[in-house]
């Protein structure tokens, strides 16, 4: 039982660490927008990369994906594939426009 309690303490330390990083990353996003004034392309890239890092942190640690069973990871992998197919929709439409005209 002591092992169990120790494991949870370890968990909580990780959570607080993740929490801190999320706060820092949020401020970093806002800061990069406020101070850097990058051109729109790199600016979007920076914002999305930071968001992806934050999302990964939440998914891996708060949602325990880092130690999750293979079955759930498989379901999510399948979903992610179709998610990207969905995101390709606009690209396909505009590609069609270019070739068609």
């Amino acid at each position: 039982m002591t092992n169990h309690a120790e494991a949870i303490d370890q968990h909580i330390r990780t959570y607080l660490l993740v929490f801190g990083s999320l706060i820092v990353l949020t401020l970093l996003t806002v800061g990069s927008w406020h101070f850097l004034h990058l051109p729109i392309g790199p600016h979007i890239a920076v914002a999305l990369i930071i968001a992806t890092i934050k999302a990964t942190l939440v998914a891996c640690f708060f949602m325990h994906l880092i130690s999750e069973r293979k079955l759930i990871l498989a379901v999510l992998a399948l979903t992610v594939v179709f998610f990207f197919v969905l995101l390709l929709l606009p690209v396909m439409t505009s590609l069609g426009d270019q070739v068609g005209h």
């Binding site: 396909m92 590609l95 069609g96 070739v99 068609g100």
Partner: peptide
């Protein structure tokens, strides 16, 4: 799915 949309003018590549 887009084989339902061939005549929307989506171009030959797609």
């Amino acid at each position: 799915w887009a084989h339902h949309m061939f005549i929307t003018g989506m171009g030959t590549v797609m």
